[in-house]
Write a protein that binds this DNA or RNA. Structure first.
Length: 797
DNA sequence: CTTGACCGGGG
DNA sequence: GTGTACGGTCAAG
């Protein structure tokens, strides 16, 4: 039988002491294909010493007994890698590899061991050059299967085929509502499907609501929905750390079998760091929170990664605003269940829409680095970079470096080097601004200067053109610059093709997400070289990259000053320029600068800003990385300020944002007046407690806290008064009137009847407002003089 | 200044 | 199990 399909997922099982790889695919006719491969064998490399005499024979004959099982080397091949002889040592099952490598590494004839920790299914994909989600042709013998709609194949041969149109995957988002550690509702959202399962009956006209008898039935229905809808991509938000944990726990307790796999297999968990991720054979389980946290966060303005703020920023939609305490009591009183079900469905809807936006990016990363979407969607930047380097290392037939040992990692963490250049701004308000930045500064430096672990202080060149005490080979192209240059060139080609395509088309979409995937790898490579856990770690490389970065940016600053422009600020790869006729002058400066730069390097205009505020300390020293800019089309860009942090009360955050807006639009007096009014209102106790609450999460039981922070103290007192507070609950507290430390005065909002004006004025309102107003010459005293306007009037006008 | 504890998202 | 998270922030020492 011959067919064409897209690979979605891969696992392996041990059957009769043989490793069988299962490829879960989707055929061009929309059928689930399970293809079995039994011909691929696990292996690792042994590097022999110069004098090795009979190592080959010793390896071939080697066996060891573990847990009454004989572990054997089944085959040894002699091959060449990196201009040396190495032995490719095979065994029958993957778990033998770590045992075998530990046995042979102490032999005197063995110099080293390599590639013993490349995951088995990953190894299969790399060695056979199979990219997930790309089209493959499978030739095999059909086997009988218990799941009648699937095709079960024993693989003879797999080849790549030219890309066809992408299949449309069945994507489904789900969300749970949990109360007292029980699942009370579950919602599902797909293109043409929405459903809310609820364990309590309530009158509703909504067709999507399905009342179930109990939690057990809810879980059974959940399984049924995923299986019967033939879900290929299962989406959720924070499902690794929350929803699946609950599902597992409750299913065990209630005796529900979670046979969710396309082959009817049970859901299982794989350890990734400290959290466990649910694996469902043949279906792609994506936790969008993990993906956002690891890869998307950097480019978001949102400083919290809640579904609400991420969805708001990426798809322009928000959750329904509900009060969770109210919701809890209405659930118990069986009121307002329709509202709760609407809320629950909305979460799934937002997750689904976020998925529509982010899953294509996950998929293009998958294709680019050759790893399944399950893995890619949970990886950090460093892992993404490492995986693409592993892929290219295999293509180039070079040995992949080993992971560092624990000791080595600790040693590396002690290494330090000078970072990026940040120009200290002068606190104040600025107008007529242009932000210029280097296009991919660090990647372009790596390529232009051939920075790589193997080109570092090479033997073939004269040690000249030193950067931070080191030099890089001028004759042979380094591994990392070679990979990055390919990526930069491909991205450049894609971007120019994109300009000619219609932005709505599928082709445009595919190319666009591909270039986004390439961008991630480009931007993360510098950080990877400095990452202590990296296989291709190179502290000297990282140091050279930032050294050159400082050189380029400081030269740019000098050049800008020479043309008479004021350089207000500069951080790493950008300069904020100020002056009359800023548009023309920035453009001129850009052209002049680019002429002098080496190949691959380029400076661009990021945006023009009508005004900006840079903050300063009480002593008048400008603060780096804390500022706000107002673009010419009215967009506010706030960096590093308190506005969105949840350990600040709403009153302080709102006030800060209003103050920023006012001072950036020439309304300083109104800003000052607003702050004074807020202070006065606080003193007169006119502010609602709701605006003064501070949110902090209780992560463990009270007695486990060593440091009694305000939220812990507030929770403790509330429990003493009989309130039930569970681990994981967000404590909403207010600082009330009284004596002692701040934590002594912290009370849960329910028990707070008053507030400490002094605390809110001095620790919340004034710090937030003065962060901005200090640059205009104001200090605490200006707002603390009771009722006296004299000190303020000196700045008026 | 360094060290260690805590936290993220979810309900 | 072809293993063992991570980076930022803040209070205490």
């Amino acid at each position: 039988m011959k067919l064409q399909a897209q690979l979605l997922d891969i696992t392996y099982k041990i059957i009769e002491n043989t490793a069988i790889i299962y490829l879960y695919c989707l055929s061009d006719r929309g059928k689930n294909i399970i293809a079995k491969v039994d011909s691929f064998k696990p292996y690792f490399y042994v590097i022999p010493q110069e004098k090795e005499s009979d190592l080959l024979d010793r390896l071939k004959a080697f066996k060891v007994i573990r847990d009454e099982k004989t572990i054997k080397i089944t085959k040894v091949e002699e091959i060449r890698r990196d201009n040396q002889k190495v032995y490719k040592v095979f065994t029958n099952i993957p778990s033998n590899i770590p045992i075998l490598k530990d046995e042979v590494k102490i032999w005197p004839e063995v110099k080293g061991k390599r590639e013993f920790d490349i995951a088995f299914t990953r190894r299969y994909l790399i060695d056979n050059d199979i990219e997930p989600l790309s089209w493959i042709q499978i030739i095999g013998i059909e086997e009988e299967t218990t799941c009648n709609e699937d095709i079960f194949l024993h693989v003879k041969e797999i080849t790549k085929v030219k890309s066809k149109d992408e299949l449309s995957f069945n994507m489904l988002a789900f969300d749970l509502e949990v109360l007292d550690e029980k699942i009370i509702m579950a919602s599902f959202y797909s293109k043409d499907f929405r459903k809310v399962l609820c364990i309590k009956d309530f009158p509703t006209k909504q067709k999507y609501v399905k009342v179930v008898n109990n939690e057990k039935e809810l879980l059974e229905k959940l399984v049924e929905i995923i299986v019967s809808r033939k879900v290929n991509v299962l989406l959720g938000y924070n499902t690794d750390r929350f929803d699946f944990e609950i599902i597992k726990e409750r299913a065990e307790k209630l005796g529900v079998t979670l046979n969710l796999g396309v082959d009817g297999s049970k859901l299982f968990f794989v350890k990734r760091g400290l959290s466990h991720s649910a694996r469902i054979n043949g279906r792609i389980n994506i936790d969008l929170y993990a993906f956002v946290e690891n890869l998307i966060q950097q480019e978001l303005k949102a400083e919290t990664l809640s579904l609400n703020s991420v969805a708001n920023e990426l798809i322009g939609e928000k959750k329904y605003d509900i009060d969770w305490d109210e919701m809890e009591s209405s659930w118990k009183k069986e009121q307002n269940l329709a509202t709760l079900s609407k809320y629950c469905l909305k979460d799934s809807e937002l997750t689904y829409k976020l998925g529509e936006k982010l899953v294509p990016v996950v998929f293009s990363l998958s294709v680019l680095i050759g790893q399944i979407p399950f893995e890619v969607s949970r990886e950090r930047y460093s892992q993404v970079v490492e995986q693409i380097l592993i892929k290219h290392s295999h293509i180039k037939k070079t040995l992949i470096p080993n992971r560092p040992s624990k000791d080595e990692i600790l040693k590396r963490r002690g290494n330090s080097y000078a970072g990026a250049f940040v120009l200290e701004p002068k606190g104040g308000i600025y107008k007529n601004l242009a932000m210029l930045d280097y296009r991919s500064l660090y990647p372009s430096i790596i390529v232009s200067h051939n920075i790589s672990p193997e080109t570092l202080n090479c033997d073939c060149c004269e040690p000249k053109d030193e950067i931070m005490g080191n030099y890089f080979c001028k004759l042979k192209k380094g591994f990392i610059p070679e990979v990055l240059e390919k990526i930069m060139k491909e991205r450049f080609t894609l971007k120019s093709k994109l300009k000619k395509l219609k932005s709505g088309s599928q082709e445009y979409q595919d190319m666009y997400t591909r270039q986004v995937a390439l961008k991630y790898v480009l931007n993360a490579t510098y950080g990877y070289l400095a990452y202590s856990g990296a296989r291709w770690y190179c502290n000297e490389c990282a140091s050279a990259i930032t050294g050159l970065g400082r050189k380029y940016i400081t030269e740019t600053i000098e050049a800008a000053r020479k043309t008479g422009l004021n350089v207000v600020y500069s951080d790493t790869d950008s300069v904020l320029l100020q002056g009359e006729n800023i548009h023309e002058r920035a453009q001129d400066f850009l052209i002049k600068t680019n002429k002098k730069l080496p190949k691959f390097m380029e400076i661009e205009i990021e945006d023009f800003y009508q005004s900006g505020v840079f903050t300063s300390t009480s002593k008048g020293v400008g603060i780096k990385k804390r500022y706000a800019l107002l673009s010419e089309n009215g967009e506010l860009r706030i960096k590093g300020l308190e506005r969105v942090r949840r350990d600040w009360c709403a009153l302080a955050k709102d006030l800060q944002e209003q103050v920023i807006k006012l001072v950036l639009t020439d309304q300083n007096d109104a800003a000052v007046k607003l702050v004074q009014e807020t202070v006065d209102a606080l003193k007169k106790k006119e502010i609602a407690l709701k605006k003064l609450q501070i949110y902090t999460k209780l992560k463990k039981t009270i007695d486990k806290y060593e440091i009694m922070t305000p939220h812990v103290q507030a929770a403790k007192r509330a429990i003493e008064r009989g309130l039930e507070i569970k681990v994981g609950q967000t404590i909403r507290y207010v600082i009330t009137e009284g004596e002692g430390r701040i934590s002594d005065k912290a009370e849960i909002i329910k028990f707070a009847t008053n507030y400490d004006s002094e605390y809110y004025i001095e620790n919340q309102i004034l710090p937030a407002a003065l962060r901005i107003l200090r640059v205009l010459g104001y200090s605490e005293d200006d707002f603390l003089m009771k009722g006296k306007q004299t000190s303020l009037s000196k700045f008026a006008g």
